[in-house]
Structure formats: structure tokens, C-alpha cells
């Protein structure tokens, strides 16, 4: 049997809170209307079911044998790199209206290669320019997609 998991416990608690939110929010919508079920019908049952199953997950987890100390702490420390990557991604999206898609992709690529992968700036610039030009040619020029543009027009 798998040992008790802090990950399962924390995710179940988070989901129970989320289920509670869905239930409370759904209660604001009408449950039944003259024509039949209202907009609150399904969300209300979904919220209740999410709460119920989250509690089941908590119970099942607590019934398992206790985990050995140390656990899997490494899982969370490696998560910081992923989080940095995600923040860089969101930062690039934030800059879209000002710098456009192509320039943001170039910057994101440089960040990932230089800061995350610790490779040389030259290889980063080369890859970033290649990707930027390639994406522009394929999606903007060839397919005519309208992607966010910088004031410079690309």
C-alpha cells in the first residue's frame, strides 16, 4: 500500500475549499426555473461532489500507513525552476502588447537558454533569432495569421 502523502492531503484540502466555493457560488444562481433546471443546477451538484470526493481522498490518505521521514522534499525544490520558467512565460505574454509576439519569443528563448540552461549567449541569440524569423515567416507571412505586433511592425 502506498504511504500517506502530504501532496494528496494538501491537494484534497485545496479541492475541498474549491468545491465549497463552487457550491456557495452556484447557490446564488436559480436551481430550478419554470422551464426546468436553472443555471445553478449542475454547478451546485458539481460543487457538492467535489467536496465529497475531496473528503474521501482525505480519508483514504489518512487510512494509509505513515510515510517515512524526509519524504520527497526534492520534488518541491525542483519546482522552483519550473516556476521560474512559468514566470518568464507569463512575463513574455505581459510584454506582447508592447513588443509583439516575435520579439517576446526571442526574449523568452534567450532567457530559457542563458539563465535556465546556462548555455552561451551566442547560441541563445542564434536560436532565438532563428525561431523568431521562422515563426514570423511561417505564421505571419505564409499563413497570414494576425499575431500581436510591436510598434516596429513585427
Amino acid at each position: 500500500m502506498e504511504p500517506r502523502s502530504i501532496k494528496d492531503l494538501s491537494s484534497a484540502i485545496a479541492l475541498a475549499v474549491f468545491g465549497l466555493y463552487v457550491t456557495i457560488e452556484a447557490a446564488r444562481f436559480s436551481y430550478l426555473t419554470e422551464d426546468g433546471p436553472g443555471p445553478g443546477f449542475l454547478p451546485l451538484w458539481l460543487g457538492i461532489a467535489i467536496c465529497g470526493l475531496s473528503l474521501c481522498l482525505i480519508v483514504v490518505n489518512q487510512l494509509r500507513p505513515a510515510a517515512k521521514p524526509l519524504g520527497k522534499q526534492r520534488d518541491w525544490s525542483t519546482g522552483s525552476r519550473a516556476l521560474a520558467g512559468w514566470l518568464a512565460f507569463m512575463g513574455a505574454v505581459l510584454l506582447f502588447p508592447f513588443l509583439g509576439f516575435t520579439l517576446c519569443l526571442v526574449l523568452l528563448t534567450v532567457f530559457l537558454i542563458v539563465l535556465m540552461e546556462r548555455r552561451s549567449i551566442w547560441s541563445a541569440v542564434l536560436v532565438a533569432l532563428g525561431l523568431g524569423i521562422g515563426f514570423h515567416l511561417i505564421f505571419v507571412v505564409a499563413l497570414g495569421l494576425s499575431l500581436p505586433k510591436s510598434p516596429l511592425g513585427f
Partner: peptide, 30 residues
Amino acid sequence: YYVLYPAILGVSIVGAYSVSSSLFDVWMLG
């Protein structure tokens, strides 16, 4: 892989953005 990752992210952004040409979809992608 260091070329593939940004390329995948780029393709993902294009895919999400072109659904309704909205930056909000790219935020949702994130």
C-alpha cells in the same frame, strides 16, 4: 531540447492566440 522548449511554447502561444485573436486566451494558456 533547448531549441525545442521555446519552439513548443511558441507553437502553443500561436495556437491559443489564434482561437479568437485574444491575448486573454494566452493568459489562460499560462
